[in-house]
């Protein structure tokens, strides 16, 4: 059982180790806590505030849609949540542990074990089969081959792509590729799914199918944080956080 207290004295790597070995948190508990998060891009003459003093709490089981116009900081926020980017100031607790000061290898460990990514452009590796793409994060985890196989098959089954396991990404439609990407994201049983415009590269039919898939995952207990431009898709989420100029301007809880 994880506690939600952040102990600032605990070394970063120990935090990561605890996170890496963590069990599922209790439903409704705080999963992500951002306090005063600020990200500034500095050039010689100009300071650009990509994120300004963000306070955000995401609980286990929530489906948060992050919306806002282009340049509002949506994707930067998602990159920070996914430990793909760093911040200038503030705190970020993931499952109660501070993750901003972790080393690069500990951040990789946290990403691998606790975060599932779904990208707008699918980001499947063209040289690997569908099976291998889904298997990839599990391989990095050092999971035994038999267990990997079981997990991959289960994940592909969940998104209805088991019959395409031996295909290469290039042989699939965009919608199918995104379903494979979803399978890859959930195969490792992460604490949270981070989706960046998951339907942005899909036609409406395929987009709806992916949204349906995310709904099913959410109903099954997944916590999702999704960046989207589409108000209709944002409405499917249980909560909508609106950004403008790097600030949270609205936080709407629907149910």
């Amino acid at each position: 059982m994880m506690t939600t207290n952040n102990n600032a004295e605990t070394p970063a790597s120990e935090d990561a180790a605890v996170l890496a070995g963590a069990a599922k948190v209790e439903t409704g508990k705080s999963l992500i806590t951002l306090e005063g998060l600020t990200k500034v891009f500095e050039t010689e003459e100009v300071e650009t505030h990509a994120l300004s003093n963000i306070h955000l709490n995401i609980r286990q089981g929530e489906w948060v849609a992050i919306v806002g116009p282009s340049g509002s900081g949506k994707s930067t926020l998602l990159a920070v949540l996914g430990l793909l980017d760093t911040t200038t100031r503030g705190t970020y607790l993931l499952d109660g542990k501070s993750v901003l000061d972790l080393s690069a290898s500990d951040r990789a460990l946290v990403r691998n074990r606790h975060i599932g990514f779904i990208f707008q452009s699918f980001n499947l590796i063209g040289d690997l089969t569908v099976f291998e793409n889904v298997e990839l994060p599990l391989t990095y985890r050092g999971m035994p081959a038999a267990e990997r196989k079981q997990r991959v098959e289960k994940a592909l089954d969940k998104v209805g792509m088991a019959h395409r396991a031996r295909h290469m990404p290039g042989q699939l439609s965009g919608g199918q590729q995104q379903r494979v990407a979803v399978a890859r994201a959930v195969a490792g049983d992460p604490l949270i799914l981070l989706a960046d415009e998951p339907t942005g590269n899909l036609d409406s039919k395929n987009g709806e199918a992916v949204m349906q898939l995310l709904s099913e995952l959410h109903k099954a207990g997944a916590t999702i944080c999704m960046v989207t431009h589409d108000p209709a898709h944002a409405r499917v989420a249980t909560r909508t956080v609106s950004l403008f100029d790097g600030r949270v301007v609205q936080d709407e809880q629907r149910r």
Binding site: A108, R111, F119, N123
Partner: peptide, 16 residues
């Protein structure tokens, strides 16, 4: 670079 970024995003350490 993009492929490497994807791998890293999925949790590949530098050694891997």
């Amino acid at each position: 670079q993009r492929e490497v970024s994807i791998r890293a995003a999925l949790g590949a350490g530098r050694g891997q």
